[in-house]
Amino acid sequence: MNASLDQRWLASTSHSPGALQIRELSKHYLLDGQPMEVLKGIDLRVKPGEFVSIVGASGCGKSSLLRLIAGLESDYSGDMQLDGKAITTTSLERGIVFQDHRLFPWKTVAQNIAIALKRSPLTRQEKALRVAEHIRLVNLQGFENAYPHQLSGGMAQRAAIARALITQPKLLLLDEPFGALDALTRISMQRELQRIWVQHRSTMIMVTHDVEEALYLGDRVIVMDARPGRIKYEIDVDLPHPRERHAPRLQELKEILLTELAGSDADK
């Protein structure tokens, strides 16, 4: 592959990372006419290019937090800004990957990824080129024309990640992206995600149940507590990327995190 092609590839798959600032964020739902607090007083700053993992018991509002940042939920109190711009609705600057791949079953892998470029001013050829690049980025070459039902869970999730990255978002949100995958696929997907993140250094926030996953990938791990959902604890993972999964420091931090999480369980 020649140099100019390489450069173009880097240019079009690189992301300018964004800074997220959340102040006093609260959100409640109405349940049988009674207000139920899902999130209360969330303060969070994420630096450009940082990888933040969020762990917590189910019901702690961590998925709601991601949906709010994505702009899928309105009606909150507090303040959320990406690079100084208030978050009011969905935007191509913020991508999200869900636990279910959410590909359209009637579209092929390439078409599913291309749909994210519907609003893009690129020409048809440029779009096709960029789709091909992102298919390469997630190692799905040869499956461009496959339908989602023909893919394994891991492959479908790769396609979903490619779709989320192709718009070059400043911030990528990951809502338990590997939660539905088997253990082996999960480990290889974590390694892949780490590679993609190291390559592009876009800002990422990942919600997960898996403490090891949170530590392996995150620069910082945030522990959330339930009812109402709030930030309970924060830990810096002071290890450079890419990391060794069995690093002793990760084991230490895991013990600390598990104690914290067990504590929040005992409260209930």
């Binding site: 899928l72 359209f104 749909i115």
Partner: peptide, 26 residues
């Protein structure tokens, strides 16, 4: 969830109908 994906990628109305609504309900 299909409509959410359409919102996330800010699909214009014609594309919402042609790429999502009609194929899904076909």
């Amino acid at each position: 969830s299909h409509f959410e994906v359409a919102r996330l990628y800010r699909l214009p109305r014609y594309s919402l109908l042609l790429d999502v609504v009609f194929p899904a309900a076909a």
